[in-house]
């Protein structure tokens, strides 16, 4: 536990280094403001513009919903890799603490998961918009907008130095939790409703 997180050499914990260096509220304020702007902006865009209906499809898939569900499922799988690799980097997996491949795995699984989620979100916002009919749809809309805000905050926080040790795990956990909610309210619902189709 007292080790320095190998993936975040700029973030030390428990908190031996918090004495020197002026923290400055900006390093929290900027991510928070960006996160809020992203989430609110996405929601406002989804709410205001006319949903375009269906937009794109991929060869081999029967419907846009199937494409999105599989993309989201893949993103969720990579998010699981995120959690496991993060646990490893924080020394919670015996024998894996210093594995040199953990940080790159964490970084790249996160990037892939994010880039898989972006097309899904684009279609959601462009084709369907922010909707509030039904609790599943409402929670999905809210969580979807919140996710990209929280993810932006996580990315920006990674650049800050000398964060409290608990902050990144908490924000990362939040991002993962929200993604789980999104997946449960969309892809799982799709597979349960229409069957596991491609």
């Amino acid at each position: 536990m007292s080790n320095v997180d190998p993936n975040a050499p700029t973030a030390s914990f428990p908190s031996p280094a918090s004495g020197h260096g002026r923290p400055g509220p900006a390093r929290y304020l900027v991510p928070v403001l960006v996160a809020a702007a992203v989430a609110v902006g996405l929601g406002a865009y989804g709410k205001i513009h006319d949903p375009a209906g269906t937009a794109f499809n991929l060869a081999g898939f029967s419907s846009t919903g199937a494409v999105k569900s599989w993309l989201a499922t893949a993103a969720f799988a990579f998010a699981l890799v995120q959690v496991v690799s993060a646990l490893g980097m924080y020394g919670r997996l015996p024998g894996l603490r210093d594995a040199p491949w953990l940080p790159p795995v964490h970084r790249w699984s996160g990037r892939i998961a994010f880039l898989l989620a972006v097309p899904v979100a684009v279609h959601c916002l462009y084709g369907l918009g922010f909707q509030t009919f039904g609790s599943r749809v409402m929670w999905h809309s809210l969580a979807g907008c919140f996710f990209f805000g929280a993810f932006s905050a996580k990315m920006l926080l990674l650049r800050s130095e000398r964060l409290p040790g608990w902050l990144l795990p908490v924000v990362g956990g939040l991002v993962f939790t929200v993604l789980t909610v999104i997946w449960l309210t969309s892809a799982l619902w799709f597979f349960r409703t229409f069957g596991v189709t491609t």
Binding site: G110, L115, M155, L158
Partner: peptide, 12 residues
């Protein structure tokens, strides 16, 4: 400051 996370965001 590491710029990797920024590139990730920009790529998205």
């Amino acid at each position: 400051k590491r710029s990797g996370p920024l590139y990730t965001l920009l790529a998205g």
